[in-house]
Amino acid sequence: MSAALPILGDHEQSTIRDAFAALERDVAVTLELGPSAAPVTLLAAGGRELDTNAATRAIVEAVCALGRLQQAGTTSAGDRPRDSHEGIVRLAVLEHEEAGPWPRTTIAGPTGVGLLYLGMPAGYELATLVGAIIEAGRAEPGLSVATLDRVTELDRDVAIDVFVTPT
């Protein structure tokens, strides 16, 4: 993720800007950075070692800047935005000293947290970051009535982990 290369092309920026302009509710994005609990070495194209914290920060900031962005002060991930209809993207960055599952990006709407993403949302996973912001900013859930009926019946907690790769 070289500083010399743009993170998003002109077409991507335009598409994301249009999508974020249509947000119906505020969205809170919290980016947590820090030393990894289980360090791995990732190499960018060209064989350079990748600083996933720095790369993730650059991606998340570039994406959020395409919305009506406000830098937010927060002390914990998952803080919900106020339930306004301005469609503001509130970005907070927390830097941890202790090792943990960083980088971690939390995306929340007024109804709660939609997604915790562990790792760098690059490549195909850029769409995951953008999509989660769009979903959190919807006034109505993007699910069928049948699905909403099923999840309303849930009487226990369910944790979904989706393992992905950027390519």
């Binding site: 996933t52 709407g109 939609g114 997604l115 993403y117 790792g119 995951t128 999840v151 992905v164 790769t165």
Partner: peptide
């Protein structure tokens, strides 16, 4: 991932995490 996110937003009973498999091998 999008479906998991939608479900988590629709129900306080559901949580959704996306995990980059090569970083969290």
């Amino acid at each position: 991932m999008l479906l998991a996110t939608r479900l988590a937003l629709a129900s306080p009973r559901i949580t959704a995490r996306g995990i980059e498999a090569s970083e969290f091998a």
